[in-house]
Design a binder for these strands. Structure first.
Lengths: 274, 274
DNA sequence: TTTTTTGATTGATCTGGGTCAATGAAGCGA
DNA sequence: TCGCTTCATTGACCCAGATCAATCAAAAAA
């Protein structure tokens, strides 16, 4: 809750960091990735290239700038920054956060590989939220003017972008329903299931999740308080549904977890209306 | 909380209604509007045509099907319906609602003239929420395949559509922040101010608002219960901020209302974290 | 017109989850 | 290694807003 002096060009800082880093020893991920194109990307089916043919893919590659790498806590962009590019997460994870004038923040989402961020900035050419890396994270940068150009030439890309943006809208809607209708325990259950499912799409382990965000982040995202989240983890572990150890959470009883997502009326008949 | 039998084609019903209606006496609005094109529409600056030149506007018109008119309570589409078109509200207002398996609903938004709805359906070709008219409402239908075609020919339209979609994302984000961080009174204050501001953009009275939605709808939208909303109206009227009479709400002290939007700490120093 | 239904308001009471406070347990820089 | 800071957990208490219930008014049906 301190400095929110808008820096219009975070890019410069990132560039500096990138240069420093390349002078450092072992950083094999970076080097590999720089050579890769959308056509060879493991994420292609989740990402913009989905359903686009080979020739058009090459065209798309011209609109993708070199990947950027962020360390934990680095900002991809800050609230108020001028808009230049959309970003696709390549590896790692980020959170997007809006901060109100009063100083309190709301986390809008956690973003895993293959997911697009920055769409909110299209409305008025400024980022309305900040994007911050939760761990070492690399992203593909899509400078928007170039992307637009390619889209006019490749209609299927235009269609695909709309689809991806729509996914973003849907995710926000689900978040909204959670905030409006769900009880605390349901929220956490939904969050964990959704995370597990998204891990699954990335062909990761869907049972043992490694949370890259803090309890504070989880609580904030769920519209709760950190103490409540902590208590819920404890309770769900006691119920045998989860095994919790710090950042590592294992889903021991997926069916029970799923049951906790609905309005878990363990006695009432009619669902609460509110 | 009753019938959610998905009808894949609500269009047919609307068509029937339209025919019936045209046989009825006085309905001058309809007749006028049918003649109008995007180029002459009073909403053009708020809507898709914004920033598009005359020649391209004519092209856009080819992608806009005849307007549809809905009566209060009519559905523009239902949850689960197959996706065909986006819609722009022309006059009147609608609400979009998701209903969970458990039967309880969450209102995602209220939609005024110039606003686009249906974007969430692009993700998987099915509407994930229902859109229901709150009063007699007319919309412009944009069949998506045609819209796509025109967009490939008119890049500025493509850009503009992304901008409008982005506005939708931003609105959802604001809703989310409200649900996550704001107290009950702040939520209502924010809601009223936002409504007033949107009325202003439509050059309507920003002081005396005519609410087209019920208290239940407002409460649901705000993640509250109808009793709470009712009490808040009473309290804000007692405080001299509002004059409330059924569906008509006048903002007597806009500055006070604005002050109620922030975390109104009438004593505390640090803003609550949560 | 009267009856019925639906929407809105108000009061009394209860509770889920927030607030406050204390204690551990990592991680980290020096 | 030792403080120091940050993150996480747990307990005791409290309150904003939900629930329950009753009344009233408007609108729709009869």
């Amino acid at each position: 809750m301190v400095d929110l002096l808008f820096r219009s060009l975070d890019h410069t800082h990132a560039a500096e960091r990138a240069m420093k880093r390349s002078a450092l020893p072992f950083d094999p991920i970076d080097l590999h990735q720089l050579k890769r194109s959308c056509g060879h990307c493991a994420l292609s089916e989740l990402c913009l290239p989905a359903g686009i043919n080979q020739a058009d893919l090459e065209r798309l590659d011209t609109a993708v700038r070199d990947k950027r790498v962020l360390e934990r806590g680095d900002h991809l962009y800050r609230q108020g920054d001028a808009f230049h590019s959309l970003y696709v997460v390549r590896s790692g994870s980020l959170k997007t956060v809006v901060e109100s004038d009063e100083g309190d923040a709301q986390i809008l989402g956690f973003h895993l590989p293959g997911e697009l961020i920055g769409v909110d900035a299209l409305a008025n050419d400024h980022h309305l939220c900040a994007a911050e890396a939760l761990e070492r994270t690399s992203v593909c940068e899509l400078p928007y003017t170039q992307l637009q150009q390619v889209m006019t030439e490749v209609p299927s890309l235009q269609r695909q972008l709309m689809r991806v943006v729509s996914r973003e809208v849907v995710a926000e809607q689900r978040h909204l329903v959670m905030m409006g209708r769900q009880q605390a325990q349901e929220r956490l259950a939904i969050f964990l299931r959704s995370l597990s499912e998204r891990y699954g799409r990335l062909s990761r382990d869907t049972v043992t999740l490694t949370l890259t965000m803090s309890r504070y982040d989880i609580a904030n995202y769920l519209g709760l308080v950190v103490e409540t989240v902590s208590r819920l983890f404890t309770r769900m572990e006691a119920a045998g549904v989860l095994a919790v150890s710090r950042k590592t959470v294992s889903i021991l009883k997926p069916d029970l977890l799923a049951a906790m997502c609905g309005t878990q009326d363990s006695g009432k008949k009619e669902p609460t209306r509110r």
